[in-house]
Design a protein around this nucleic acid. Sequence first.
DNA 1: GGCAAAATGTAGCCTTGGCTTCATCATGGG
DNA 2: CCCATGATGAAGCCAAGGCTACATTTTGCC
Lengths: 167, 167
Amino acid sequence: MEGDAMMPDAEAEDAAPAGDAASEGAPAGLPDAVAAQEAARHANARSARASALLHDYVELIDDLLNVEGEARPTDIARRLGVSHATAIKAIARLKREGLAHSRPYRGVFLTEAGRALAAEVRARHRLVVDLLRALGVPEDVAESDAEGIEHHVSGETLKAFERFLGR
Amino acid sequence: MEGDAMMPDAEAEDAAPAGDAASEGAPAGLPDAVAAQEAARHANARSARASALLHDYVELIDDLLNVEGEARPTDIARRLGVSHATAIKAIARLKREGLAHSRPYRGVFLTEAGRALAAEVRARHRLVVDLLRALGVPEDVAESDAEGIEHHVSGETLKAFERFLGR
DNA sequence: GGCAAAATGTAGCCTTGGCTTCATCATGGG
DNA sequence: CCCATGATGAAGCCAAGGCTACATTTTGCC
């Protein structure tokens, strides 16, 4: 795995680093404020990633309730492409977070909060898809990319999308 | 947590569901193909989420190497807003995946593959930011949203962005 | 040259979100 | 009416990605 050409790696850095970027007029490394700002951005992305799952479930459950009249764990699992056990654990989490409720062997239902979140998520999803379509992305690709993008679009950006689409 | 107005929830659904959507001309529930397609989209988003972390590390390490001449775990951790231990574990994973190499107490370096990935990730990041800016999103918001969005933009969509930006 | 502080690395813990496996419940066909 | 079958739920495993606490190494300062 490493008997190959390793290029100049360790010895060189030993001598060069500090004198190059750090010791001139500029402060060593980066200003703390800049690093902090970047850290905040990453923290933000991480938390969006964390709620993305919940959003997907809520969105799907809402859809199932509207279209099919009921949302059963097996269907949820099938549509998300996960095992039913995984879906059930996620549903338990939704309940813990006050987004859904259910009783054993009955379907899953959304609370007020869950419905509100579903509406918001769906609106966002549609807007992202519409924007991508408007930029010339083919339908299916737009749908697929939106699935990931939608969770990271801030309110500000959402407004910009609306403006661009002329709404 | 629930002593409030729970509205009609469980009893009603018992009677309505099957007769409504399933038993008329249409096939019960959804066509399997549609569900499979949706499942694929979600699987796709999940896998993008999984690689997002690695991409962030690679991108940052590349940046540190270019700007500072070296990438040290502590700096990486600071810029990402995580503890140094977390960063070190992630670096170990990068090494496992052949994207980086390092020896104890020396900095971290990217392999060929790592550098290639970094270039790709950075290009994508810039393009997403530029697009958002072009749509009227303020600089800092664009930068922040891009951090999450960039990992979910397919090649097709990327091309559409380029086209739109007139490149 | 030696020691203290800072950087690095290690170990162990927690939660999430996957999975499989097994037990239990509900329902419909014979 | 009863049982087979399929849906549901529970338990336990695993990897990832956080953390804190502790150990070790480098480094720089005196």
